[in-house]
Amino acid sequence: MPQIIDAKGKPCPTPVLMAKGAMAQGADAFTVLVDNPTAVENLKRLADNQGFSAAVREGNGTYALDFVKTGSCDACEAAIQSPLPAPGTDWAVFVGRDIIGDGDRELGTNLMRMFFYTLTQGEDKPGAVLFMNAGVRLPTLDGQVVEHLKALAEAGVEIQVCGTCLNFYGLSDRLQVGTVSNMYDIVTRMQRAGKVLSL
């Protein structure tokens, strides 16, 4: 009889954490009970990422997700196929603003352009450049920085741009380089990097 985890009435992300707890204990099959569609979606995503199938049964406002280990996992396969960077060689740049430093905006704007120019010239390129808050003005509005980012992307550098921030600044349809991203992917990319430079 598979283990039953009753997560009804538990706030997010408790149901996911309870399911992860069962996986960590080595459970190959278990059922999670929840009472809202958001929890169902989160649990399905967890199943996909961890190599489980999760069939959903619904009745009387309760959802039962039957987790069964399948051993195959698209995200895991992708991770296995992509070579891991050697420790210390993968690094990322986090850009949370559109100028470098405090003080004069004109100078700060040019320092930012010079920074990306210099990145394109060097051998040791970052694995990723991550833009948030006013930083998203760079891959949308700054022609010179866009040019450098395109060169970096061609050299294999991931360019991730915060979608929430693009939306906030009304720039969603003006992204010229990189992919629209979210906090989960940006944080995950930071965690994977050996070091993160913050501008």
């Binding site: 004109e106 100078l107 040019n110 352009r113 010079m114 120019y117 210099t118 010179q144 040019e147």
Partner: peptide, 22 residues
């Protein structure tokens, strides 16, 4: 001077494809 560089940038950007670099 840096002020000279910024002044030249403003004069040149409308007429030539200049790029800022170190």
């Amino acid at each position: 001077s840096t002020h000279g560089a910024i002044s030249a940038q403003k004069a040149l950007e409308p007429v030539a494809a200049v790029r800022v670099m170190p």
